[in-house]
Design a protein around this nucleic acid. Structure first.
Lengths: 200, 200
DNA sequence: TGATTACATGTCCCTAGGTACATGTCCTTT
DNA sequence: AAAGGACATGTACCTAGGGACATGTAATCA
């Protein structure tokens, strides 16, 4: 995980492990029940669309690789050129292993962070607009999750496993989004006072 | 921003804009005052180290590119082979423009999300360990920011501009981390009840 | 029945980012 | 004065991911 960061080389073994996020993302969704590439792309889009774009080319490619590795297998060659995959036992074992395994990589993308980091460089009006949008964004995310939970409850996603715990997951997501929205709201109420350094 | 996501092509112009995060990150830090590549790598590491690894090869490369574009210039060819850069006026204008500009790309990395998304697949023990670590992680982040704020107050980072608003920025970061830690704590107290689907 | 549109899967290329490894410089210690 | 290490900057490569573009299939509708 992230070598090459300051200072002389520390003794470490090449990891190769970790990452492969998409691979495990697909595996996890398939653990809920069989689905086709298109289904998966849609599910990703619905649940994570705002924070993670599902790119179908990658999804189809990864599905084939997963099948080659025997972690998933063809469930049905439905009509309309729609191939559904089903997770295999070794697939379930693999994702369990991955979930249990070591550390989470908390690396984030820089771009969203920078706006917050550079509050002090922004014109008050821009900052205001920015924070208002953040509030909207995260509130919207909370709603999106709630909506998904409802659809799930109505059984719209077919033969999912007993979803008691899935509910908790989604409630957690809703709460997280709300926390973020609250934060943005706080920030917008505590904007730095005028007198920020201008271009001089 | 994220094309290639489901459905037929929507009419959009190639962006080219956006991204370039590192570029603007460096520009923003240089707006606080002159610094060398090494300084910048250290600053990144100290403030964002836990969530964004500063990679010096990229930093040095980007600095040269910024200099070529006239957004920064050499401040002093200090001893010890230490070249400090200073932001130019067009540099300040550029980062202001970028900050004011349109939408933030909220794309995140998948890996950290997946663990939360797949709560329901985890063995209770693993989930417990995982959430405990999350709490530690975000609490640690909050402390890291506070520490940075203190050092900043003691003027350890040289000739920063009047830092009134910078303080607010850091307080915001601390609060954000705390919100995340709170969330993780909540989640660990509301773990899904036993009976999760086993391998069958 | 021909056109249009949503569904479904794919190829290909490019860039940002991650990492190993090379190198030079100055200070401290023996 | 030789040696070890923190400081400082770089080269080179490789992979994951982002996005343009191609293609085929079924349903709808004018």
């Amino acid at each position: 995980m992230s070598r090459c960061v300051l200072g002389p080389a520390r003794a470490v073994g090449t990891d190769k492990e970790a990452a492969m996020s998409l691979r495990y993302g697909l595996l996890g969704l398939l653990a809920e029940g069989p689905a086709s590439g298109y289904d998966l792309a849609r599910r990703f889009q619905e649940v994570l669309g705002r924070i993670w774009p599902a790119q179908h080319p990658k999804i189809y490619a990864e599905l084939r690789r997963l099948a080659d590795d025997g972690l998933i297998e063809v469930d049905s060659e439905g009509p309309r050129r729609r191939t559904a995959y089903r997770i295999t036992e070794s697939g379930v074992a693999e994702i369990r292993r991955w979930l249990a395994e070591g550390d989470v990589d908390h690396t984030m993308r820089l771009q969203p962070l920078l706006r917050s980091l550079f509050f002090w460089l922004m014109e008050p009006d821009d900052l205001d607009r920015h924070l208002r949008r953040e509030v909207e964004f995260y509130s919207g995310m909370a709603e999106q999750y709630s909506a998904y939970a409802e659809r799930k409850d109505r059984g719209e996603f077919g033969t999912a496993p007993p979803v008691q715990s899935m509910r908790v997951t989604i409630e957690a997501a809703v709460r997280l989004s709300q926390a973020l929205a609250d934060w943005a709201r706080w920030a917008s109420e505590h904007q730095p006072p005028a007198g920020h350094p201008s271009t001089e």
